[in-house]
Design a protein around this nucleic acid. Structure first.
Lengths: 155, 155
DNA sequence: TATTGTTATACTCTATAACTATA
DNA sequence: TATAGTTATAGAGTATAACAATA
């Protein structure tokens, strides 16, 4: 991999450290909105993919089937998701996002975006531009990981 | 990529989504190295700040004192940290990183950096440059958050 | 009395193994 | 027999409240 890179060489260690710090930051911001990371990412997956089989959801989230059974039960108690039967196969449980769940995602996303913008206002215009440029690059980085693992991941 | 960027307005919602996806990605990469996020970030804090009081560590990690008591106990069982008495104040427990803990951090960091570089190789040179530029901007974003919390800047 | 830390208890989230129901 | 999901059980990680030891 000896290619000619543009000015800025990517330092994996530096990026790993920066991302770890951001992860810690976002984890703490998440605690404030009263829903766990597990619940939030599962709801996001339901929003992205639409109604899913429970086992499919478990695979997408990278957890076991029993773990997803319990997580979906908690989401049902919260009113954010619901189980429905599958007409074609009586063994299958389809998990649906409820309107309340969709609302929660929207509010959570708005709050997070707002907080990030607050923080970004304290940065220089150059830093803000760098973050804007990195946003889509980060998406593609994540997509590269998914390609490795699933070979076909629409997102 | 054209070197001439438009004003590049930062979209908080887009960045929040991108970062959330990266968080999910890193969480899964973390599972592979056999240590929990809680343990890892606590060890990193010890590495950064040096030996800490247990209560100080709890504050830095944003968890309660009882939670840190248990976490430190688990880290001691793992051999990654240890409690020591404080000569000046017998109530105080000082928590130290062990050599094994420092080793673990180094290996973890190397593995993560390596994995990120693997993924980055699948990106365009422009995307890699964008990530490189964003790395330090992300650090400053996190620093802005810390400033808010440690200097009691009202929002 | 205030502080530092631990213990007691309970809830979330996860895993593995054993089970039920359906195909 | 194989698949989809649940139940049983155990352990990590967290919180609040009550406690012990020291200042």
């Amino acid at each position: 991999m000896s290619k000619i890179h543009p000015p800025a060489e990517l330092d994996g260690a530096a990026l790993a450290n920066s991302l770890e710090r951001v992860v810690s930051l976002l984890r703490r911001l998440a605690l404030a909105d009263g829903i766990s990371q597990s619940k939030a990412t599962t709801l996001r997956t339901l929003e992205t993919y639409g109604p899913c089989r429970l086992s499919e959801l478990a695979t997408l989230e990278g957890v076991t089937q029993p773990a997803m059974t319990q997580l979906v039960s908690r989401l049902e108690l919260d009113g954010y998701a619901e189980r429905r039967a599958c007409a074609e196969d009586a063994r299958v449980v389809m998990v649906h996002l409820t309107p309340a769940g969709a609302d929660l995602l929207r509010r959570r996303r708005d709050a997070r975006a707002h907080r990030l913008m607050e923080l970004a206002e304290r940065l220089t215009a150059d830093d803000r531009a760098a973050l804007a440029a990195a946003s889509s690059a980060l998406d593609r980085l994540v997509a590269a990981h998914h390609t490795d693992h699933h070979r076909s991941t629409p997102t």
